[in-house]
Design a protein around this nucleic acid. Structure first.
Length: 245
RNA sequence: CUCUUUUCUUUG
């Protein structure tokens, strides 16, 4: 079953969803019965294809087979609804989860905040952050990255920087992703010099730029027609052992 | 850091 779960995940993450589905019957043929993880994986596959109805059916089906949904089952569904912007439905699943004796966790809240940010409901997203703290679920780097990106996206640079400060004050170190968000924002504003300065700052904090960092910067230079600098960065990235993609 | 499932960053 472990083996097939790995296969199922492989299919789902590559978008080969029908292959994942057929695994269900194939497994039985080998005497391996699909477990909760198998179902969670397929469930995620449906969600990623936007087939939420089918996902719900699968949830019913797994219960019918005597398999108990776990946190991940519910979180997967919630992620699915957040992805397509159905926050109302996502909230309903949270209620369902709670009734099944699973309290929403860090992941649940992070996904909800992401959903809110995408819809431009930044005030509510921030309120969720405060709420979870009251419940002793501490926001992590992902939480803050989500909020910071949201603030930038909706043109609230001040709030974004305050979030960054708050994160630091809580002893959370900005991650590579955090820096990539900052770099992207500076590029969008055409502040290329500061973006490059950020590269140095990263190094000082022992966070090494990756492909995303460089691609972001290169895109920034290209957008303002500075192809010379763009080429320089390409050289720099291969010099660092990064492979251009 | 023996990574089977759910959340954050680029090109989109």
């Amino acid at each position: 079953t472990h083996t097939f779960n790995i296969l199922a995940h492989g299919f789902v993450s590559r978008g080969e969803f029908t292959d994942a589905l057929s695994l269900f019957s194939t497994m039985e043929g080998f005497g391996c019965s699909p477990d909760t993880i198998t179902h969670n994986t397929i469930l995620d596959g449906y969600c990623r294809k936007g087939m939420l109805k089918e996902a719900r059916d699968l949830l019913v089906e797994m219960k019918g087979r005597g398999l108990l949904p776990d946190r991940s089952t519910y979180n997967t569904l919630i992620a699915g609804y957040c992805r397509i912007g159905w926050l109302k439905e996502a909230t309903k699943v949270i209620e369902l989860m709670t009734r099944s004796n699973f309290l929403p966790d860090l992941w649940t809240y992070n996904m909800l905040m992401l959903g809110m940010c995408r819809e431009g409901r930044m005030d509510e997203a921030c309120r969720i952050k405060d709420e979870m703290q009251k419940l002793a679920i501490m926001p992590d780097v992902v939480s803050y990255n989500t909020l910071i990106k949201g603030c930038f996206q909706w043109r609230n640079e001040g709030a974004a920087l305050r979030m960054l400060e708050e994160m630091r004050s809580k002893g959370l170190k900005p991650s590579l992703v955090t820096y990539n968000i900052l770099v992207k924002q500076l590029c969008e504003e055409g502040r290329m010099d500061e973006a490059v300065t950020n590269l140095k700052k990263m190094e000082e904090e022992f966070t090494h730029p990756d492909n995303v960092t460089y691609n972001t910067l290169i895109n920034g230079y290209c957008r303002c027609g500075n192809f010379g600098e763009a080429y320089k960065l390409m050289d720099e990235m291969v010099g660092r052992g990064l492979k251009m993609d």
